[in-house]
Simulated assay, not measured.
Amino acid sequence: MRTIKQQHQAISAPIADLITYRALPTQSVEHLDPFLFLNHHGPQVYRPNNRGLPFGPHPHRGFETVTFILAGDIMHQDSGGHESVIEAGGIQWMTAGSGLIHAEISSPAFKRTGGDLEILQLWVNLPARHKMTEPRYTGLQKADIPKVAQDEGHVILHAVAGDWFGTAGAMQPLTDMQLATVEMRLGGKLALTIPAERTIFFYTIRGKLRVNGQETEARRLLEFNHDGNELQIEALSDAVVLLGHAAPFQEPIVAAGPFVMNTEAEIQQAYQDYRAGKFGTWEG
């Protein structure tokens, strides 16, 4: 079995009135190549006639955002002309690539009625060869994401990307990456074989688990050593996990605000291109 190098506690990092815990980066972990960033928004309840999510138009270049809507909704708009409202159980996959402007706000219906809200946003790096790829966006509702049952139904994987027990995920990414959300009932068990050289991304959204012999709980990110290929998970309560793994790029990472590139010069170029209008125009 792989050993756990460290458990990293997500830190409180509220954004306006939005409850937010940042799991990556924190003082104890900078990144898990190629996984760069994870914000856990909520859970919280919005009152009727609320202002909704605070993420107005902003640019990105050089990476991908994967957004998991656990409760509530998100309305996406971007400078490539994409628009959608994704509801609970769905995901948004945006490849920023060479650059675009987007906004992630609540739908008019959610602002009017309020309700439960819980959202995860994960940033995944792109390798140098894909950093300037053409931007694209896919929004998927819950019904669009294949479900894979394990342990006689005590474990349900929502296959977002890659291959899970022979079932292809809803997305086939540009890079060699697998992502799923995993629902586990008390006592449920899941065993996976993941080659030792791959980076595992394991974040407990809620509940308590035993992972390769160690107990962990909600809002903790596990960092693994590269010393084994077996992952064994047991639910000590009902639990939900964000689980992924990927081949690390082992490239320089230079990040500044909304841009993630390989060199400082590329970051400066990104700012110049954004100011020159090369990320498109905002029509929202």
Rank of each mutant, 00 (worst) to 15 (best):
F165N: 12
I11E: 15
T67Y: 13
Q268C: 05
V160S: 02
G89S: 04
H245M: 01
I267Q: 08
W123A: 13
N262R: 12
G228E: 09
A88R: 14
Q44A: 12
K142F: 09
L242R: 11
V211D: 10
Y203H: 08
L231N: 10
T281F: 06
W164R: 02
A170L: 06
A265D: 14
L100I: 13
Q6K: 07
E234L: 12
S237Y: 07
H102T: 01
P59D: 02
A143L: 06
Q268N: 13
G244K: 10
K208E: 13
I101A: 02
T3R: 07
E266P: 14
E283L: 10
L157Q: 11
F259C: 11
A143K: 14
L70A: 07
R61M: 13
H8Y: 04
E83F: 12
G62V: 05
G52H: 09
T199Y: 03
Y46P: 07
G97Q: 08
Q272G: 09
L24Y: 06
M171Y: 09
E215C: 07
G99M: 06
V85L: 11
D73T: 01
R219T: 10
A159F: 07
N225T: 04
H31R: 12
I105R: 12
Q269F: 02
L140A: 12
S237A: 06
N225R: 04
